Computed example of a mutant assay.
Amino acid sequence: MKDILHLNMYLITNLLTVYTVFKFFKIFFDEERYQKYKIAVYFLYYITTTSVYLFCHNSLLTLVTNIICMFVITNLYKSSLSKKCIAVALVYGVSMLVECIVVLIGIFLKWGNVEITGLIVSRIILLIIVQILHTNTFIQKEILIPKIQWISIIVFPCGTVLLFLLLDKGDFSNNLLLPSVMILLFFNILIFYIFDKLNSEYIKSIDEKIKANKKELEARYYLQERNVFYNQLLIAQDTGEKVKMIQHDIKGHVFALRKILENN
Score class of each variant (00 low, 15 high):
residue 1 M to A: 04
residue 2 K to L: 10
residue 2 K to I: 07
residue 2 K to D: 09
residue 3 D to L: 03
residue 5 L to P: 01
residue 6 H to D: 04
residue 9 M to A: 03
residue 11 L to I: 05
residue 18 V to E: 07
residue 18 V to M: 13
residue 21 V to M: 11
residue 36 K to E: 05
residue 40 A to R: 12
residue 51 S to P: 07
residue 52 V to N: 03
residue 58 N to R: 00
residue 65 T to V: 05
residue 66 N to Q: 11
residue 68 I to C: 13
residue 74 T to V: 08
residue 74 T to A: 07
residue 77 Y to M: 04
residue 78 K to T: 14
residue 79 S to E: 09
residue 82 S to H: 05
residue 85 C to R: 08
residue 87 A to V: 11
residue 92 Y to E: 15
residue 94 V to S: 14
residue 96 M to E: 15
residue 101 I to L: 14
residue 103 V to K: 10
residue 113 N to F: 10
residue 113 N to L: 07
residue 114 V to E: 01
residue 116 I to E: 04
residue 116 I to D: 04
residue 117 T to L: 15
residue 117 T to E: 07
residue 117 T to G: 02
residue 128 I to Y: 03
residue 129 I to W: 01
residue 133 L to E: 08
residue 135 T to H: 07
residue 136 N to F: 15
residue 139 I to A: 08
residue 139 I to P: 01
residue 144 L to M: 06
residue 146 P to K: 11
residue 147 K to C: 00
residue 148 I to N: 06
residue 154 I to S: 06
residue 160 T to G: 14
residue 161 V to H: 05
residue 161 V to S: 02
residue 162 L to A: 09
residue 163 L to C: 08
residue 164 F to T: 01
residue 164 F to S: 00
residue 169 K to R: 11
residue 172 F to V: 03
residue 178 L to R: 05
residue 180 S to T: 13
residue 181 V to S: 11
residue 186 F to Q: 06
residue 188 N to T: 12
residue 189 I to M: 11
residue 193 Y to P: 00
residue 194 I to N: 04
residue 196 D to N: 14
residue 203 I to L: 15
residue 205 S to D: 07
residue 205 S to P: 00
residue 207 D to V: 02
residue 209 K to E: 07
residue 210 I to Y: 00
residue 214 K to C: 00
residue 215 K to C: 00
residue 215 K to A: 00
residue 215 K to M: 01
residue 217 L to I: 04
residue 217 L to S: 04
residue 220 R to A: 04
residue 221 Y to W: 11
residue 221 Y to M: 09
residue 222 Y to F: 10
residue 226 R to I: 06
residue 228 V to D: 08
residue 229 F to H: 13
residue 230 Y to F: 13
residue 233 L to M: 08
residue 238 D to Q: 13
residue 240 G to Q: 12
residue 243 V to F: 14
residue 246 I to T: 00
residue 248 H to Y: 08
residue 249 D to E: 14
residue 250 I to Q: 09
residue 253 H to Y: 10
residue 254 V to L: 07
residue 258 R to P: 02
residue 261 L to M: 12
residue 261 L to N: 14
residue 263 N to A: 14
residue 263 N to S: 15
